[in-house]
């Protein structure tokens, strides 16, 4: 510690420590601690907060699992279904993202020449200067029954009747996949870029077909980047709100939308907090399990 101060000087050292402390404590730990605390409390009117009725309870968590006491059904089927579907759909979106981004990242990192690679990266980044909500609405216009895609398909006589992409959730998955695509491309690009191209050529020279080169040489090398990209996309997709709100069909509810309703229209913060904590934990457990399966450590992801 004294070494740290001597190296950087009093002013800079104090600033660095303070900045890290503020970041971790105020931006990360405190809000989450509050949420955790909220999730174990009753939803009381302001007057009763801090009073004798303000005690800890498991009621909010029980509600997600079993619904209201006295309900006919054993479990809170509606919310649990939405929860499971959100997780599974997020996995699906993550896989789609990986399938789309891996070839792009490989091309930019290993195949494209300098100027071409920079141009491609710019093309990828530019659309993200547009606000997330605007992008979601743009997708709505694209996929609407009288939207560009339907118009195109009808003009060329591929379909007679417009397809309801929104009801079929195609718009939702497309929008979600697109929303966080950069967070998949860049970790992949960084990881693949550091691979010595001679290794690709060596594998090819030894007789390897292209898919085996990727399976045995490129992907193992890029594993930390793959893990990092997939984690980011999965977490953010599971926690997305704008895209499901704007592009979701009437039958597809995203778990975040339920949380949003508890906080907003429902006015029940403790209930919302409990749901949010469950989502957070589920995501964490899922990500850590996948990382263990693929033998990636947290340190590698941060590389």
């Amino acid at each position: 510690m004294t070494g740290f101060f001597r190296r950087n000087g009093i002013v800079i050292s104090t600033y660095l420590l303070l900045a890290v402390f503020v970041w971790v404590a105020i931006m990360i730990v405190l809000p989450q601690a509050y949420m955790l605390d909220f999730s174990f409390r009753f939803n009381l009117p302001p007057g009763k907060i801090g009073g004798p009725e303000d005690v800890y309870t498991l009621k909010n968590y029980r509600y997600l699992l079993f619904g209201r006491p006295g309900d006919e059904a054993m479990f809170n089927v509606l919310h649990l279904t939405v929860f499971l579907r959100t997780i599974i759909a997020s996995i699906f979106v993550t896989l789609i993202n990986f399938a789309i981004c891996y070839p792009i990242a490989y091309y930019i990192a290993q195949v494209a020449k300098g100027g071409q690679a920079r141009a491609l990266i710019l093309i990828l980044i530019l659309p993200f200067w547009v606000n997330e909500i605007l992008r979601a609405f743009a997708f709505r216009i694209l996929f609407g029954t009288s939207g560009v895609i339907n118009a195109f398909l009808q003009t060329f006589g591929i379909i007679d009747q417009p397809i309801d992409f929104i009801r079929a959730d195609i718009a939702l998955y497309a929008g979600l996949s697109y929303a966080y695509i950069l967070l998949m491309v860049f970790p992949l690009y960084n990881a693949i870029e550091s691979l010595d191209h001679n290794q690709v050529e060596a594998a090819r020279d030894l007789g390897s077909p292209w898919w085996r080169i990727h399976w045995r040489v490129v992907m193992p090398h890029a594993k930390p980047g793959i893990a990092s990209g997939c984690t980011l996309v999965f977490m953010l997709t599971a926690g997305a709100l704008a895209a499901p709100q704007i592009l979701g069909g009437p039958s597809s509810f995203w778990f975040t939308q339920i949380i949003y309703r508890w906080f907003n229209t429902g006015g029940n913060w403790p209930q919302g907090a409990a749901y949010a904590i469950v989502l957070l934990l589920a995501c964490l457990i899922f990500v850590l399990t996948v990382m263990r399966l693929f033998k990636v450590s947290l340190g590698e992801i941060a590389k």
Partner: peptide, 30 residues
Amino acid sequence: NKRPTALIFQNLALFPLMSVADNIAFGLEV
């Protein structure tokens, strides 16, 4: 990958994530 040649690269280009034996046997695995 279809020629009866094998190339030894200037920087060798061994596969760092495979064992020595797996490196040697890569062409056979293929």
